[in-house]
């Protein structure tokens, strides 16, 4: 069904008064336009009469609780940041800006970390050896040990995440 010119503008209220009057005169004798206008009005009316849904009773309270949690979380991160800065400042004060002493201390720290790493490796290696020896699954043992390790990492990550988000 071919639309008459001006129908769209009439139905979208895009006509000035003059054009509108001319179109209304056309409408009086054009059955096609009358049908289109009638249908468009019927749909518009039904759309506007759609029943409205209500917000859940505690909607606003839930939003506000979420906002408070976020604010707390941001505050917590701010505290972490402040703590890091404080510790750095404290270290600076203790070392008193003595560069060679700092370099010496840094070397000592790196060495002790390396030693600690070495010891840790030995401990893990020994525990693994004991575990592998104890597990009667042959080739499955490394995969199982790896799986357990990954699961522990995941639990650690989730715990750290929920703490940083301010939830337990």
């Amino acid at each position: 069904m071919k639309e008459c010119k001006g129908l769209k503008d009439y139905l979208t209220d895009a006509m000035d008064e003059d054009r509108k009057m001319r179109f209304v005169a056309h409408l009086a004798h054009c059955k096609t336009c009358q049908a289109s206008v009638k249908e468009d009005y019927a749909i518009s009316k039904a759309l506007s009469a759609f029943p409205k849904v209500n917000a859940p009773t505690k909607f606003a309270a839930t939003v506000m609780r979420e906002l408070v949690l976020r604010k707390r979380s941001r505050f917590a991160w701010g505290l972490y940041g402040a703590a890091v800065v404080l510790v750095a400042a404290l270290v600076g004060v203790i070392l008193g800006g003595n560069v060679s002493a700092v370099a010496g201390q840094a070397t000592v720290v790196v060495r002790s970390l390396a030693d600690f790493g070495g010891s840790l490796y030995t401990v893990v290696h020994n525990i693994s050896a004991i575990l592998f020896g104890a597990l009667p699954m042959g080739r499955m043992a490394p995969a199982l040990a790896g799986g357990i390790f990954m699961a522990l990492c995941f639990v650690f990550y989730k715990t750290a995440f929920s703490f940083s988000a301010g939830r337990k």
Partner: peptide, 8 residues
């Protein structure tokens, strides 16, 4: 923050 509830 509490005033935001009025907008919600």
């Amino acid at each position: 923050v509490d005033r935001y509830e009025a907008l919600v």
